[in-house]
Design a protein around this nucleic acid. Structure first.
Lengths: 244, 244
DNA sequence: CAATTTTCATTTGTCAGACATTTAAAAGTC
DNA sequence: GACTTTTAAATGTCTGACAAATGAAAATTG
């Protein structure tokens, strides 16, 4: 691992990259201890503060964890599904909010991906997954539920559908698509009638998953996509008219 | 934005979280300048080094960028698709390599997601996307191509298919699934016969996309998935036998 | 007056050294 | 042998300093 003191980039960024590359290349394996900050400082011929900034960068990506005390130090971290989920959700959410992504673009992506899961989920879902879906549908019927709570329940429902496929890699990939939609959905005010329509579609999807009918689940998702996009569009147009 | 000096977590992690939350909540908007390190140090009642470590954490997630000099400082960064792609690929790759994910699990996720794109891509792909797919097929036919180059071309082919859907959010979500498979694919040694089979399936997919036949493209992807999983399995079994 | 150069204040990047805190192993004690 | 104390090693934090970059303002020049 070498760095170039003449490079325009910050030393701490270069050092972080060198260590990151070593981890990705497998030169540093999970739970292996990195040299102490003092040793790294000597190796790279920089000060300890510079090394520390590099290590903090890696910690922010969950690539290492640090432990204080004797025999402590920085250890290569096993990237857990939970960590990866979190990063995926943060990145997706910010990507959507900072780039003025159209509602229907995000919605299309989300439902296309969910339809990819639906046949697998219909085939493999456990009783638990189905129970969660039913419970969330029940919750969504409650009057007096705030829009935020309704959206949160919507996310839980769809996550249960995705998780039903029993493929953690798929669940990880979908986490961003499903969760990042929530802030966009929160911009919608749901009327009693629109909630009723959505709950009915959720029911149809749950029914399809219950009888292990993948294509029917896909159809339900497609119908939900059309309805959601139409709902958002009519609300946006309404706001534009009032804005005049 | 407040921090709790009595919390068990590091101060720099707390400060990073406080700023990150402010960005996500929209309290700090894109291109807005954060207070200088000295001012932040005063606000949070910590030293400048602690503030710097917090800022480096945020920089590692592409949430801020820094600029030296007068009127420089830390600015809230617009998370670009390119940055998001990169993070997604790094995270996905590490997740697969560090968690001993089975080849067929990752493969199933990847092809399920690609099938989600196929109908959209068949409908909307430009001539460019199709040309890229054809060019990569041509490249894959070249004798003397290394396995690494074959896999890289495979990734390019599939990315063209995904990008053909014309939905950047979808492309972003798929980036991880497609690219993270490459290290796993690189573990396979491709015989002339297996390459021929794969290239033929690529051709079938390209044909389907050319005539805008989404279902046929999906079928091609399914066939490719079965073939790839079978190939990997037979190679693994072969290695296990020889290992005896 | 306009264009160019110089100065200058501000801010990040890096360094050195110090002390506090945590932690587990090692030594000591009963 | 079980418990307590000591100790060494490591990270976390603070202070103060200087280097380097950078854009604005001031000075200079034609």
């Amino acid at each position: 691992m070498k760095i170039d003191p003449a490079s325009p980039a910050d030393l701490s960024a270069q050092i972080a990259k060198a260590i990151r590359d070593a981890i990705i290349a497998g030169e540093l394996i999970v739970d292996e201890r990195l040299p102490s900050e003092a040793e790294l400082a000597e190796q790279f011929a920089v000060s300890r503060s510079t090394v520390r900034e590099a290590l903090k960068r890696l910690a922010a990506q969950s690539l290492i964890r640090t432990q204080r005390g004797a025999f402590g130090g920085a250890f290569v971290n096993r990237l857990s599904y939970a960590d990866a989920y979190g990063q995926q959700i943060t990145t997706s959410t910010l990507l959507l909010s900072m780039n003025a992504v159209r509602f229907d673009t995000a919605c299309e992506a989300r439902f296309a991906l969910e339809r990819a899961c639906a046949p697998l989920s219909a085939e493999r879902r456990s009783a638990d997954h189905l129970a969660t879906m039913r419970a969330e549908i029940f919750r969504q019927k409650q009057p007096g539920l705030t829009d935020e709570a309704f959206c949160a329940s919507d996310v839980t429902f769809h996550r249960a559908l995705v998780d039903g496929a029993g493929n953690p890699v798929l669940s990880y990939q979908l986490a961003g698509a499903v969760e990042a939609m929530q802030p966009l959905m929160n911009m919608i005010t749901f009327t009693a009638r629109s909630r009723e329509a959505i709950v009915a579609l959720h029911g149809a999807i749950a029914d399809a998953v219950e009888v292990r009918d993948g294509p029917a689940a896909c159809d339900g998702l497609s119908a939900l996509e059309s309805y959601t996009v139409g709902l958002a569009r009519s609300i946006m147009e309404d706001r534009a008219r009032r804005g005049k």
